Simulated assay, not measured.
Amino acid sequence: MLNINKIHHAAIICSDYAKSKAFYTEVLGLPVIRETYRAERNSYKLDLLVGKDHQIELFSFPGAPPRPSYPEAQGLRHLAFEVDDIEEAVQKLQNQGVAVEPVRIDETTGKRFTFFSDPDALPLELYEK
């Protein structure tokens, strides 16, 4: 059996690198760890810090196919971010022009959560601590 410590990163391929970079850094406020342009692939890789020790890798690949369907396509269903105050986080997203679904209660945990989308319609979730 493997001795897995944690999830290190989630990788996202975007359709418009500049638009997605602005969304993740300016709207969500994720700090940039490093940005790399790979000329041989005509591709960018942007490493973003989530919290103290987690990362999102944002990639651009020319000609990448779109996501097959929303919301229940096979594969990654959504990416969830933990927040301390869901109402405050929702308000900040809405102030940036991001559409956010109504806040719901998780029937299993009793915690509040909601969904919104990134520029490529990748479903993202806010989950209250």
Rank of each mutant, 00 (worst) to 15 (best):
L2W: 10
L2C: 08
N3L: 08
I4D: 03
H8G: 04
I13G: 00
C14N: 02
S20L: 07
F23A: 10
F23G: 08
E26Y: 08
V27H: 10
V27A: 12
I33V: 14
E35S: 13
E35A: 07
T36I: 11
Y37S: 13
Y37E: 14
R38W: 11
N42R: 11
N42L: 07
L46Q: 15
L46P: 14
D47F: 15
L48V: 15
D53N: 13
H54D: 13
E57K: 03
S60T: 10
S60M: 03
F61Y: 10
F61K: 08
P62I: 09
P66D: 00
P68K: 11
Q74D: 08
L76R: 01
L76G: 05
A80M: 08
F81C: 11
E82S: 06
V83N: 12
D85L: 02
I86R: 02
E88H: 01
K92F: 01
Q94I: 02
V100T: 02
R104G: 01
I105L: 05
E107H: 04
E107Q: 07
T109F: 01
T109M: 00
T114C: 14
D118M: 10
P119D: 10
D120E: 00
P123N: 04
L124R: 14
L124D: 12
L126T: 09
K129G: 04
